[in-house]
């Protein structure tokens, strides 16, 4: 078994995504326990300049491959490059982000490196020199502790879970040649369509801001759309609101509408009839805003605000804007 804790850093348009720092910080912690170094792989086009930033979060070495073929991300190019450098250096641990890109890349690397991986981990530690990853299973109904016997021991980390810790290290930049074979690059990204809030379908959204009878009319949805815009969320509606003609049928969440399971469901002016709950109760987090403290939705909500939604929602929009700008 090799040595070193490695991460695959993720950047988009020449800027690191926050999860890269989470990876670096976590890798640092593990490496300190093992007495090993932290190395990062950074792929992109014209990204050499940012590579050094990783040193701040505990990365000793950054292996950078700069190639136009890395932008935009394709599995073929990235997996080939990471596999090559990882094989050459034989680390003991390889961490990736469980982001949209990271999930795709990590799974392919499992195949290329013929090893095992714990996906989407929420905790990670070293026990007896071995990596022990903790990850939710069965949609979070139980957790598994995973040990990987292959090499490297791979894990992907759920974004926004691990803390970002500064601990200055060299962050020495080493360029490497990914040795890409153009013929092996089979998939092509034809187009990148940026999403804005509101255009996202409720069934695919990670965050849904939903309004019911309490919206009082179609014009009430303006404030929900604003909040959704900030959160890159979809706007949903209850049956009552759709029946009243305030919102289109495609936005309806519930037994007779769409069944959704976003990470966050913000229910505004929705009392929470069973038909509605059947369509959204598997959401990871539920926020309820309703004037009626007896509304059944509060029994399902993780966070509840008993107040006038027309006062609360605009304040949330302001607050979220502020938080997301940080």
């Amino acid at each position: 078994m090799g040595k070193g804790v490695w991460i695959v850093a993720e950047q988009r348009e020449g800027a690191f995504r926050k999860v890269s720092f989470e990876l670096a910080s976590t890798a640092r912690k593990l490496a300190d326990q093992l007495g090993e170094e932290v190395s990062a792989v950074l792929l992109g086009s014209g990204v050499e300049g940012i590579a050094g930033q990783l040193g701040k979060y505990g990365v000793d070495k950054v292996f950078v491959a700069d190639n136009a073929a890395f932008e935009p991300y394709t599995t073929d190019a990235h997996a080939a490059a990471v596999a090559k450098i990882v094989k050459e250096n034989d680390p003991s641990i390889l961490l990736l982000a469980a982001s949209a890109q990271g999930k795709d890349l990590a799974a392919r690397l499992v195949g290329k490196l013929a090893t095992g991986m714990a996906s989407d981990c929420t905790d990670i530690k070293i026990d007896g020199g071995k990596l022990v990853a903790v990850r939710p299973m069965y949609a979070g109904k139980c957790y598994g502790e995973v040990v990987v016997s292959g090499s490297p021991q791979m894990a992907s980390l759920r974004p926004n879970v691990f803390p970002v810790v500064e601990s200055a290290k060299a962050g020495a930049v080493n360029k490497f040649d990914a040795g890409l074979d153009a013929a092996a690059l089979k998939t092509k990204v034809l187009e990148v369509q940026k999403e804005t809030g509101g255009t996202i379908d409720v069934s695919e959204a990670n965050i849904i801001v939903s309004g019911g009878r309490g919206m009082k009319g179609p014009e009430g949805y303006g404030i929900l759309e604003e909040l959704a815009g900030v959160l890159k969320a979809a706007v949903g509606a209850s049956r009552a609101a759709v029946d009243a003609g305030w919102r289109p049928l495609k936005d309806q969440v519930g037994q007779t509408g769409k069944t959704v399971s976003p990470n966050l469901y913000i229910a505004c002016g929705i009392s929470g009839a069973i038909q509605h709950l059947a369509g959204m109760s598997s959401s990871k987090y539920i926020v309820a805003i309703n004037k009626d403290p007896e509304a059944p939705i509060f029994q399902k909500a993780d966070y509840g605000i008993v107040d006038d939604l027309f006062k609360v929602v605009p304040e949330m929009t302001k607050e979220c804007k502020k938080l997301l700008a940080e």
Partner: peptide, 13 residues
């Protein structure tokens, strides 16, 4: 041969 093994299943926090 499985290389990633769930060694312990626990209830969620």
């Amino acid at each position: 041969e499985s290389k990633a093994k769930v060694v312990k299943t626990v209830p969620p926090p």
